[in-house]
Design a protein around this nucleic acid. Sequence first.
DNA 1: GACCGAAACCTAGAGCCCCTAGGATTCTGG
DNA 2: CCAGAATCCTAGGGGCTCTAGGTTTCGGTC
Lengths: 196, 196
Amino acid sequence: MARAGITADRLVAAAAELADEVGFEQVSLSALARRFGVKDASLHSHVRGLWDLRHRLALLAGGEMIDRIGVAVAGRSGRDALAAYADAYRAYALAHPGRYAATQIRVDPALVDADAPAMRRTVEITYGMLRGYGLAEPDLTDAVRLLRATFHGYCALEASGGFNAPRDVRASWDRAIDALHIALENWPREETDHHV
Amino acid sequence: MARAGITADRLVAAAAELADEVGFEQVSLSALARRFGVKDASLHSHVRGLWDLRHRLALLAGGEMIDRIGVAVAGRSGRDALAAYADAYRAYALAHPGRYAATQIRVDPALVDADAPAMRRTVEITYGMLRGYGLAEPDLTDAVRLLRATFHGYCALEASGGFNAPRDVRASWDRAIDALHIALENWPREETDHHV
DNA sequence: GACCGAAACCTAGAGCCCCTAGGATTCTGG
DNA sequence: CCAGAATCCTAGGGGCTCTAGGTTTCGGTC
């Protein structure tokens, strides 16, 4: 009987395609095995289980995503860099919804260290993008968290059909970037002490 | 044999508790049936299936959440209203992670109309909270989207352990609210036409 | 108080999923 | 060419959702 020639990498690649087609949650070892013309039990020799597969998929997608963002941001600074970062982020999330969802899973820190480069590049590129605004810690961390939250929230809501109003989402997105740029330029100084 | 006295409402209430304990994705009809000392097939007479249960849970949680936000926002305006809204939002998401996750599922618009009050109150309260900033459409919609995205993104990332830096999340959150307030007060006017 | 219809709950069973254990086949390197 | 390792298989346990159809219990009515 001819062999299917399955590799962990080919498995993850197929999982990525499947995730973009039917959604991250719907990716199953059974469906994957079916796609390879193989019994589902056979996959357990390449991958430790569904969790392992999802974890690998998260690393793949995270790497792909930060690569594109890195390219988009390269050579830009200030508002241009922010807009390029944001647009690349959203473009990836919309083009690869399943992969993007994979990047959001909670990931074991111990395993991350093993394949850390993508993670490290992500923080490097993100903090680098903010360089022009002249922020120092802890404001830098606060700003990064604000940006991550806004970008992720926007893409998550858009992907799940949360924006019903008849207003073009792309236009709203551009205004959100403008608003964030303004917030970064006028970053709140410590003196203002509201919120009990 | 004594009866368990199951109602659709009691079922949803139990599902809410279970969701907060083990996570929204882990809520199963089987587990629920076990909790009521009943066979899982019996639940299908009260609820149309897992999807129906999740849908009802989403409506319950959405109602609870907007109630608390409404109370927090009442009698406040401007920055105070924004901070109260944001804090009530995050407090609910952190106190009831499973319920909060339920509010994020894609929900059939046809069914929403049937139980629309919570949904309508949500937009009323949200738009009302922004009244002080003097925005008009489409900027209002853009601002609402920005706020929703940031709030949701923040809570989602925090809940999934996405904030690793040794910086107090609550402090970052306060700065994010400050930043949003600044962005709303200096809302970008149409003339600025960046982003290709 | 007995009855009757409507709930509430049950068993049985199909279908899908994940995963383990151990057997058979195919590749591959010495 | 021939081990040994890698690949794929069958067998089977356990969990989940959901349908179909049977019993039992409850509440109201005569």
